[in-house]
Design a protein around this nucleic acid. Sequence first.
RNA 1: GCAGGAGUCGCCUAGUCUGGUCAAUGGCGCUAGGUUCAGGACCUAGUCCGUGAGUCGGUGCCUGGGUUCAAAUCCCAGCUCCUGCACCA
Length: 886
Amino acid sequence: MFIVDYKSIEDKWKKRWLNKGIFEANPTKRKKCFVTFPFPYVNGPLHLGHSFTATRVDVYARFKRMQGFNVLFPFGFHATGEPILGVAERLKKGDDAQKQILLREGISEDEIEKFKDPKYIVRFWQKRIENDAKNLGLSVDWRRKFTTIDPTFNRFIEWQYNYLKKKGYITQATHPVVWCPHCQSPTGDHDRLVGEGESPIEYVIIKFRFDDKILPAATLRPETVFGVTNIWIRPDSEYIVAEVDGEEWIITPTAIEKLKDQLHHVKVKDKIKGRSLVGKYAKNPVTGKEIIILPASFVDLNNATGVVMSVPAHAPYDWIALQDLKKTKAIEKEYGIKLSDIEKIEPIKIINTSSIMGIPAEEFCKQFGVQSQLDKEQLDKATNELYRKEFHQGVLNENTKNYANLKVSSCKKQLAHDFKNQGIASSIWELTGKVVCRCSTETHVKILENQWFLKFSDFEWKKLAKKCIDQMKFYPEEARKQFEEVVEWLEDKACARKSGLGTRLPWDPEWIVETLSDSVIYMAFYTIAHYINEHKIESHYLKDEIFDYVFFGVGNPEKIANKGITKDLLLKMREEFEYWYGQDMRGSAKELIPNHLTFSIFHHVAIWSDDVEKWPKAYTINGMQQMYGQKMSKSKGNYITIQEAIDKYSADAMRITLMDSTEGMDDPDWTEKATLVWKNKLDNIYKILKENYNKGKAETILDKWLTSRMQEHIKTITENLENLKTKSAVTVLHLMINDIQWYLRRTKPGKALNYALEVLVKCFSPFTPFICEEMWQTMGKKEFVSISEWPKSDREIDKEVLQLEEFVKNLCEDLNEVIKLAGKKDNLYLYVASPKEFDYYNEAKDFLKKEFGFKKVVVFKSSEAEYDPEGKAKRAKFGKPGIYLE
RNA sequence: GCAGGAGUCGCCUAGUCUGGUCAAUGGCGCUAGGUUCAGGACCUAGUCCGUGAGUCGGUGCCUGGGUUCAAAUCCCAGCUCCUGCACCA
């Protein structure tokens, strides 16, 4: 039995690589290749998803290294943002759920205690991830590692943002966000328990006069103010009288908090019962009409102001509520309203839509089978449908005076604007649906003042980004279009937040640079990070002018040098940056296209606007790793960390299985079975190698054949790897193995077999580096296969032999079939059409005897056949000999 | 809804740009035989349908149309799946 001890092989070579520093790259005269991978976020170990992208990049790095490039593959750790801080804070508060999660990760109680310090969390996972990466066999130059919360890195980001600001790429604006009042921070889509996809939306407030006060009715359809017949109020609720921007408004308690967060001056004055308003009259500020205030149960106290204007012609809710009320005799007793006053309220139609003849709300209520205002589900459907229709097709009619004949879709904004100017309207922001923060607090909209934005909308900036994309290579090429699209629609992006780990904006330290914005040019930092690490350079020595010199070559190094950074060191840093930058290849999953990868392009062209050489040169995009056909998810149980996988299946088997899954933007799928199969295969290759390497020096026609075949394979696998087509490359590996096995079936080990096995091991080594080093050593090689020379297709290809051997293969197939029909026979007579075939088949006689158990094999030239009982000689064609068995 | 990508012989995948050499690559699985003091093994053959078999016939690359002497490949329409849609890493 033959079992490879992967564990010890992995340990052995991992250590040797590190000790010899073979992946540490320094500037030389050789051509460089700078390869990067988006650094992982350090709140957990590496998992299968990371390994797919990382291995792809590593395979490329190893391939290029063997091709003779001076390859730099660095690795860093992303720690900025909310999540890590969140873990620490939850633990500090004694959150048991958080503790349980960490316990389940296998972290000890003692350790968890230390997790209350976010910096400790970063250090903890950083160590773990570094180990994971090493165990996976990533060919990284570890001298250059850093985390994004290192003070030196913070200085780098400060420099970056100072520079961007100087160039005018940063602006300040006021902007509505989904806001958690507890966290005091915007609540992004991924930070929500409820309400993914919901966003802020602006309601227009129409100020209905009510004595000396104002009833602010909030609406998404300000144009319908011309059709208002009454106001709706929740009679059972308490309202607040408050001074808002110098006026007295009557609103719900929840509206108070919202308005405060939306740049209104709010002062609470008094409380008032909803029912006390019912039956009274207010004045429509647009039409001047006196309208009655009526009770309605559908009014949502948590939405906007809690005061609703009723447009029964166009709003299904209003229409049905009015119908309900007309049937409610009790209203006379309850509120002292005459039923006749309600009965005489008629809907006022103000929008004409070609397909709707009568009262739109009435028609839609009937169409959707709405019975009463409690029929919420159908009412919502009817409302949405009608709103859509009237928005796109509706035209305002004569009831709207100045706005008559305008399309709803085009006049909406103008109308709201006009009303605001006239002082009869205001606005309140609401959410399109309920949003609950991860901390379980319900959120609302806050208008953030003076927030800092990256001006991605800038026309000139976009133009540069497009130029960069035009010059770039994309693997696969299909990804290019999406980058072009993203640049097109990208708008200004908020680049700072109030909370989380990270770098403070140097000119406005209240703000912390947001995490997607501090990880766009960090790859440049790799080029100097090892100097900072080695010399233990303190952050305060890294002044802006140091970075200006290193990254732009601006300034006099003599003058810029300081106590922490000598002139020599400065010159070295500059040289290093100049040598390595830009990136020759960056690999990532497709989800990062619309954000990180595009942002990175934007920043590069902004910062090195005149130096095209520093721009990214190529991106390779892959799909999202799946497990057993499903998305990976911890809770669903289909989740595996790299360490678990390596322990169970070996790093090599994992790596090659992933590379064998898919190579485009489709999602790769991982199953245990495929990995086990690969593990066997690797075992078997090792076995074949041990049994056959250096076993013979003879040189036959088959050695010519094998060498020729290998030339073709080398050519294709090289092409495939140049284009990051890992799956296709693995297919070539299969073909190589098949050919070697055919060779061994055909003949005894000869000279070409050694060559083929060497090529095979080299070609496998980017995929399965550990076992390849072991095999290379077994073959008696002294240096590492990882830095050996990539095979070149530089030997003779004997096309004739390739063809003739193909004939032999075909002959075997034919013989199989004939024997299946005719049964086993002792003698084979072959009638061939050409002298070359004659010689070739004669050489193959022994093989045919062995393979099919013939006692005698005779080959005739068809023209000179001495024995031919069935006249097969006449039928012999080139490549298709006549066959006679007896 | 909007934008980008994709749908291939039981499964995963190559081929599509540049139409013919494509019943279509490689792997997995399956079937049969061999081998091995039995292991996640290895070797060989077969694996769309019909036929004992073929340099035979049929069907065939999401569905439906079209262009062409010729379509997996080009054009049009539809269906399904993946990713993203922002202040979140």
